[in-house]
Structure formats: C-alpha cells, structure tokens
C-alpha cells in the first residue's frame, strides 16, 4: 500500500501536476490582478457613496439609479444600439474581404494580403480616431473632396459629432478583428465540398448559401463576439467624434470614477453594461448553436 508521501511524489511527477505547476505563475497573476479586482468591483457596486465616505452597508440603490434614471438608460440603450450597428457594419464589410482573400487570392500571396490588412492597425489608435474627425469634419477631407467633385452643394453635417461618426470610426477600428476569424474559418473549408455542391446541380449562390456560409459561421460568430463585446466599453471614439449625441456608457463610467468620484455608481454602471453585453452575446451564441456544433 502506497503511503501518502509516495502518492504525492507520484502525483508530483504526473502530467497534470507538471501542467498545473507550469501554468501557476500566469494563473496567479490573472487571479490577483483580474479575478480579485473584478470581485471587488462587484462588492463595491453594492456599497454607496456618501459625499467623501463610502457606506459599506449592502444596498441595491446604485443599480436602481443605473437602471431607472433616464440619463443612464439613454446612455446604456445608445451604447447597445451603437455596438450592434458597429458589429453589423464591421462584419458585413469584412466578410467579402475574407472571402476574396481565401477563395480568389493565390495561396502564396495570402500572407501578404493579411499583412496589408493588419498594418494600419498598428498605428496609434488615438491618432487614427482623431484622423477620422479630420476626414468627416465640416471642412474635412470627405466634404472638400465631394464639394470639389461637385457631388454635393454644401458640406454634409450628419457624419460628424453623432452616432454615425462613431459607427464609421469603430467599423474601421475593428476591421481586422472581424476579417481574421472569418478568414481562418473560410480557409478550413474543404474545397471539394463546394465542387460536390456544384456537381450536384446547385448554382454558385445556392452553394454559397447552403455550403460555404454554414461552414464559415463559426468564424462569423467569433468575429461578432470579438467586435461586439469590447465596443460597448469604447471611450476614445465617442469622446472624440461622438459629440453630445454620440456619448456612450464608457464616457459616463469615466466621469463617475474620475470626476464625480462616485465609484460605487461607476462600478454598478460598468457591471450593468457587462451584464447587458453578456446576455446579448449568450442569446446570439444560443441562436447560432447549430452552426457551432459542426466539426470540420
């Protein structure tokens, strides 16, 4: 019969133990710097701010404020609408590009195309957003260009300092994050399946609709989630190009934390936003469950 020490010794050399030992530094770091702080934010959101001191009795008052006060409701709804719009626009624009690179570009040039697509996104995010302001402004590049071409008589004003500007800018900012997962899933599709579809008498469109698209759905779903979830927390874009009607919840969270010094309410707003995004994401995953089960 093996003693406990012997058993422990054997376990220590086992694969599981070696894996756990190896993974423990990054795991401890994430637990200390992410899981712990997140748990504290949850606790904080149930406390209340009373001028300079924090009342530590648990209460729901922050959540009641966050979910009933018109200002926060408007911001929350707008953030959600903008995020959905950004996701739709980004993924719809990205799909044809991913499709083109995967199906029409010669294999040895694919890496070059992907490189070309990712390059603009390694320049300063702040400056990219600011430059959209330059492009979309009243005297901006787009308006001067269109005026010069005689396509419009007066500058377009609906493209800066509102939600449209936020959607355009974010659709640009998230482009590679949508293109890459779709591209990867398109690359995995066995091309002989498409030939089979056509041999069996389906047209191009029908083959695309019934074979390519369902098989590409895991990539599309990943793209949607990668774009949708972080978009709701974007601060820079609404602050720079959104104007008063394009402000989003992150701008309010920043104000609560750094200007109004009401951290508990800020925490409740952050968690409410996360809750909304999380629920929408789960519903979306549920609706697409049949595509995700397919093993390729």
């Amino acid at each position: 019969m093996a003693s406990i020490a012997e058993r422990f010794g054997r376990w220590k050399r086992s694969e599981g133990a070696r894996g756990l030992t190896l993974v423990s530094p990054p795991f401890l770091y994430a637990a200390l710097m992410l899981a712990g702080p997140l748990a504290f934010v949850v606790l904080l959101s149930f406390w209340t701010q009373d001028y300079l001191t924090i009342q530590r009795e648990l209460s729901l008052s922050n959540y009641i404020t966050a979910w009933t006060e018109p200002l926060y409701r408007v911001l929350m709804l707008r953030s959600l609408t903008i995020s959905v719009a950004v996701t739709l626009v980004t993924v719809l624009l990205a799909f044809p590009i991913a499709y083109y690179v995967s199906f029409y570009v010669r294999p040895e040039r694919k890496a070059l195309w992907i490189f070309l697509i990712t390059i603009p996104f390694w320049t300063s995010y702040l400056l990219r957003v600011f430059l959209w302001k330059v492009i979309l402004g009243y005297n901006g590049v787009l308006n001067t260009g269109l005026l010069g071409l005689g396509l419009i008589d007066e500058p377009l004003t609906f493209i800066l300092y509102n939600a449209n500007a936020v959607v355009i800018t974010l659709a640009h900012a998230w482009a590679p994050f949508a293109i890459l997962p779709i591209f990867v899933s398109l690359e995995k599709i066995d091309r002989s399946l498409l030939e089979a579809g056509r041999d069996l008498g389906e047209g191009y469109l029908a083959t695309f609709w019934r074979v390519t698209l369902p098989l590409a759905m895991p990539g599309v779903v990943a793209a949607v989630l990668i774009v949708f979830i972080p978009t709701i927390g974007d601060y820079v874009t609404p602050a720079l190009v959104g104007g008063p009607d394009g402000r989003m919840i992150a701008n309010m969270i920043q104000i609560q934390f750094m200007k109004l010094n009401n951290m508990p309410l800020g925490a409740a707003l952050s968690l409410s936003a996360m809750f909304i995004v999380g629920s929408v994401a789960l519903v979306f995953l549920f609706l697409n469950r049949r595509f995700l089960k397919v093993r390729q």
Partner: peptide, 11 residues
C-alpha cells in the same frame, strides 16, 4: 472591454 480592466484595477 479595456475600461473594465482599468476600473477594477483602479479601485
């Protein structure tokens, strides 16, 4: 969202 990471570390 990065703002969540930022906020939770800050508090």
């Amino acid at each position: 969202p990065e703002i969540i990471v930022a906020v939770s570390l800050l508090v």
